[in-house]
Design a binder for these strands. Structure first.
Lengths: 297, 297
DNA sequence: TCCCAACTATTACGCGACTGAATTATTCTT
DNA sequence: AAGAATAATTCAGTCGCGTAATAGTTGGGA
């Protein structure tokens, strides 16, 4: 008996008949006609010289030999299917891939150094960090022109998935010897003081104010500017307070004559979220990248 | 991409190309022509949208993806092949099978009770014990009309396989109060005494004499008869000695007024062998049965 | 550099294996 | 007993697989 000539595709049919317990249902599951399945079973019966299934009413019941054979064979069949399905699984060490990220200025400063350090083992990967207007974020994600966006918690449609990457404690920067802060910073003193706000827009709340407004408080903003570096310079020479995420504050205050104060306890941390489009959620390369981002957050 | 439509038979070709490192050699191994293998590879390349192998001189070198895929898939392929090959592995608990044995009279008495006890758990098995002339043994084994023969060591062709089943000590039966044996049985006394020989033939050596003649000795046979039971009756009432295998002597002497003496040390044990034809050596059912015989021998 | 051997890829063709439509046979339910 | 559901079989057509032939590629030796 030439066992090596068995048509392996018949085993898939065998498995389906076994599972469905009916040729007609197996045919439906396989997108074939019932006679095609009956033929296939006939070939299997001939090959193995065994009926394999006996009709009992409207059920096809496997013979003991068939049952034993299937139990023996099925793990192998499952593994092959899995291997075939995984052929295009993402291999970051060997595949070229460009990732497009939308990162706000300060997040770029805190994320990119760590991310690039993380991806040092993957020379085939290219990262594009770009500034994306919030109103364009979802459109670009959906179009696949942008892989991920990193931002605070935003209202998004249910086509856009997101997850928390990290929570950024807020801190308050003030010049050394600031008269209000000799005995520590309270929420009253925080609201009494004047503030500098960093925002790319000429009006509207900043990140901090978005969080503050959730508690129904509003601070006295004396200055709006576009970059944290400039704001820091102003804070250094005035009595204005600058509120910002701690991660970035540590970077920026290193080179300034400035104190970092813990924010009043009522001032919440800022949630930093990762956004992507659900259409690409199962894309192996993107899943992998999400894991990398999570591991450095 | 319709992964479910992959022709699983192509995976066997893939495996062979990988192993041989050449389409031409793979074709030879698969008993196909080179273009047939080239076509199959072409189909795999199309399905996976990957070259899979690149020609480097006269070697087909797998791509990293192909390598990874094969490592992932091969255990599954091996398992399926093994399952298919094992389809007809013998399952004694569930398969009908008739075994045909050639057993000489006394071996039937010593083997069959134990064997049937052993096979009690296998109600689907049927045993036929038959008397087969020695000259017909090999012919019937070769034709598959006989599965096994159990006999002493016989000269057989190299188409017939055999193995030692057990060694049967010889004992000597004598009437109670036999005058020669008051002080024990020596070889001298054994050869001095008169003997009864049990044989189905009217002339030629018996089992014992076949063994004795290997040591160049010959005893004085006074009587030949066909059955041990009759011989025992004679021994019981005369001074003749009866030499026979111990296993059977214990059975037969139970009901007689007779002593069992240890045979002289020079008298060797009788080797009982199991014979079968080499053509059926790999037959699972026969392998299984041999194991059972070995376990009761 | 040229020639040859070894090997892969491609083209053309034929046949038989496989599939589906139609039909028959079998089993179960009411 | 009739009808529905299902398996098995027959028949016809198509297309996919394998072969023979050929073209293209690579490496080694003279």
């Amino acid at each position: 008996m030439a066992l090596n000539r068995l048509d392996l595709n018949l085993l898939h049919v065998f498995d389906t008949i076994y599972r469905e317990g009916s040729l007609t249902r197996a045919a439906r599951a396989l997108h074939l006609t019932q006679p095609a399945v009956s033929h296939s079973l006939s070939r299997l019966r001939e090959h193995f010289d065994d009926p394999l299934f006996s009709r009992q009413g409207n059920q096809m019941v496997p013979t003991p030999l068939a049952r034993r054979f299937l139990e023996s064979m099925r793990p192998g069949l499952t593994q092959i299917q899995s291997a075939v399905n995984q052929f295009h699984a993402f291999d970051p060490a060997n595949q070229r891939k460009t990732y497009s990220l939308a990162l706000r200025d300060i997040l770029e400063s805190t994320f990119l150094p760590k991310l690039m350090g993380r991806l040092e083992s993957y020379p085939e990967l290219e990262i594009i960090s770009q500034r994306v207007p919030r109103r364009d974020m979802e459109t670009l994600l959906a179009a696949g022109k942008l892989d991920f966006a990193v931002d605070v918690l935003l209202p998004v449609s249910n086509q856009t998935a997101h997850e928390l990457l990290r929570r950024d404690r807020l801190v308050v920067l003030a010049r050394k010897g600031h008269p209000l802060l000799s005995k520590g910073l309270t929420m009253d003193k925080y609201l009494e003081a004047k503030h500098v706000l960093v925002s790319s827009r000429s009006e509207g709340p900043g990140i901090e104010d978005f969080e503050l407004s959730r508690f129904g408080v509003q601070r006295n903003i004396r200055l709006r500017c576009q970059h944290y570096y400039a704001a820091c310079r102003v804070t250094e020479g005035t009595d204005l307070l600058l509120t910002m995420p701690e991660n970035y504050a540590r970077i920026i205050a290193e080179r300034a004559d400035i104190d970092i104060h813990t924010a009043p306890a009522d001032l919440p941390a800022i949630d930093v979220h990762l956004y992507w489009h659900k259409a690409y959620e199962r894309e192996p390369a993107l899943i992998w990248f999400r894991d990398q981002l999570n591991s450095i957050a």
